[in-house]
Structures are given as C-alpha cells and as structure tokens.
C-alpha cells in the first residue's frame, strides 16, 4: 500500500471556553485524528458539536486548552516566528458567510492580494496584479472584478473571492468552514465543483466542515463524525456512509433528506429521542448516552475511547467490538 504522508496529527485536542458562573464550555473534548496530504477530510455534525472550533484551533485561531497539534512532524506549540509564517502561508481558511468575510471597504484586488503583501514581499506591483488576475481566473472570475467592491457581488461570487484570497498565497491546506451553508442550492453546486476542480489541479488538502451530509459524502475521502465536542466515528467515506456503526452516526445519516417520492427517508430513519444537551452540562460518560437507545450503565459512567473496529474505521462506542477481537 502506498504510504500516505501525514499533514496534521492531532492528539487529544481539548478546547474549553470559559462560560458564566465559572463553568466551562467543552467545545472540543479530547479529539484525535490525522489528516493526510492530498485528501479531503470531512467533519460532520450538528450545530454545537465543535466542528468549527476544531478547524479554527488547528489553524491556531484559538490556543488549545490541552493536546498537541503536529504539523508535518513539528508541534505547533514549538513554532518559532519563521515556522509561524510558513504555517500561515500553507494553511488557509474559507468562511461560511461570504458577506462577512470580505472587508466592505476594500476592493476585491486589495482583498485578494492581502496575503501577497505578507508572504511575497519582493513582488512588484505589476507582478502582484498579475497574480491576482491569475487567481481570479482560477475561481472563474475575470480581471475586471479586481476593482470592484464586495457589495457589488452576489453571494456565490463573494464566496469565490474568499477562495481566491486563500489561494493567492499558494497554500497546501485549506479549512473549508461550512463554505456552502449560506448559498443557494444552484450556487452550492458551483462552489463545490470549483473546490473539487482546484483540488485536482493544485493538489490541495481540504478539511471540509459541514452539516450538509450529502455534500460531505460527495466531496470527502475520509470523514469524522462529531457529537457534542467528541469524535464518535472516523473512517473513509465508503465505510462511514456504507457501514455506519455508531448509533449516532446511523441516526444522523438516516435523517439525510433524500429527494425521492418513492422512498420515504422520513419513515425509514432511525428515531432519536430528545435533543442535544448543552456543552456546559455534557454527560460524564459517553456524550451520546442520554439519547442512545443502546445505552447501558457503563456508557453513563465511562467515556468510550475511539477504537479501530475495521481497518481504518474508528468508532467510539462501548457496545461495538472490533471484528477480529
């Protein structure tokens, strides 16, 4: 088998935020995973499950409460100034709200070249302009856009500018944080097509964070399912969607609306009782035990570890035993 190069190795990542009354919001609670070069790593979960926080923490937006983030074999905590620069040149992000992620007072050209002024300081003005036009062409826009302002653009065009800004400094890794959630259906397909095309052409690695399960299935190579700050299941696309094991994953996937009048997904879905508890008062054991139909005493007391059930397919559930055990 071909040896895949590990880009990110995240170990026991915890990210707690202080809340009122001295309590802690455990947005991310002991999460470990690896991201390989050239792949699309999908992260799915419902709102409040910590998927956005994971993405932001590995990019260094927040300083993690504990745990290690190893980038290309080097711990991000030990980064020196030049490592930080190299990291920010290589790891970029695309945002959910295309209107909020562009400065309304800057022209598109200035927005796209913002990173160039940091990472390509020797570039002449003409070279910079050329690079901006080149990147705009990548995302399917003409060079006339450079003099425009974001309020003159539509949502889909703005999202492409967000992508162009990230691409301008030639990163290798991009966190896509709900890049299509704010867009219309017909525009979503445009943006997803663009992302897949760019990945093929430029060999990018994506972390694709979304609550849109069918889009994640479409675009991802490996998928992590999160629930209330914890990773419940991790594996490649085929095993996660073809053979979901964790009770939560099963319920979640069966709730994906399928546009098909002959087959009612609503009737055949796995029923889940109750609602997601608040991350301030998360259950002590398995986070899912309050809603899990198979929960036992053990689940309530002891948090399950993520174990490899099949090759490359990890599940955090006390009730599921490894196949060869």
């Amino acid at each position: 088998m071909e040896e895949k190069k590990v880009l990110f190795d995240v170990k026991n990542l915890k990210m707690y935020f202080p809340a009122r009354g001295g309590k802690l919001v455990k947005a991310v609670d002991d999460v470990s995973f690896k991201i390989y070069e050239g792949e699309t790593f999908g992260v799915v979960g419902e709102s409040g499950c910590g998927k956005t926080t994971v993405g932001r923490t590995i990019l260094g937006v927040y300083e993690q409460t504990s745990g290690e983030i190893i980038y290309r074999g080097k711990n991000t905590a030990d980064f020196k100034a030049e490592d930080k620069m190299a990291f920010s040149k290589n790891c970029q992000m695309i945002f959910q709200d295309p209107a909020a992620c562009l400065d309304p007072r800057m022209s598109i050209g200035t927005i796209v070249s913002e990173g160039l002024t940091v990472h390509y300081r020797n570039m002449s003005k003409a070279e910079r302009e050329e690079r901006v036009n080149q990147v705009l062409a990548y995302v399917g826009l003409t060079s006339d856009y450079a003099s425009r302002f974001s309020h003159e653009l539509s949502g889909g065009q703005r999202q492409r500018i967000g992508i162009a800004r990230a691409l301008a400094i030639e990163p290798g890794f991009i966190v896509c944080d709900e890049p299509i959630a704010a867009l219309d259906v017909s525009i979503q397909a445009q943006v997803v097509n663009l992302l897949t095309r760019l990945q093929k052409e430029l060999g990018l690695t994506y972390m694709f964070i979304s609550h849109d399960l069918s889009m994640v299935r479409h675009i991802s190579d490996r998928i992590a399912v999160m629930y209330l700050g914890s990773l419940v299941e991790l594996g490649d696309n085929k095993s996660i969607y073809g053979n979901p094991m964790h009770p939560y994953t099963r319920a979640l996937f069966s709730a994906i609306p399928e546009p098909d009048p002959y087959h009612s997904w609503l009737k055949s879905r796995v029923h889940l009782q109750g609602e997601i508890p608040s991350p301030i008062n998360a259950p002590a054991g398995c986070k899912f035990c309050t809603r899990c139909p198979q929960a036992t005493e053990q689940c309530k007391l002891e948090p399950p570890a993520l174990r490899e059930i099949e090759s490359g397919h990890f599940v955090a559930c006390h009730q599921i035993q490894p196949v060869n055990a």
């Binding site: 920010s88 790891c91 970029q92 992000m93 562009l102 990173g115 940091v118 800004r165 400094i169």
Partner: peptide
C-alpha cells in the same frame, strides 16, 4: 469579524 480573522490567518 471574519475578514479580520482571515487577515490574521494570512499572517498580516
């Protein structure tokens, strides 16, 4: 705001 976050991530 997201655009300031984007600028930070770009290393500005």
């Amino acid at each position: 705001s997201d655009y300031v976050l984007a600028a930070k991530l770009l290393g500005v």
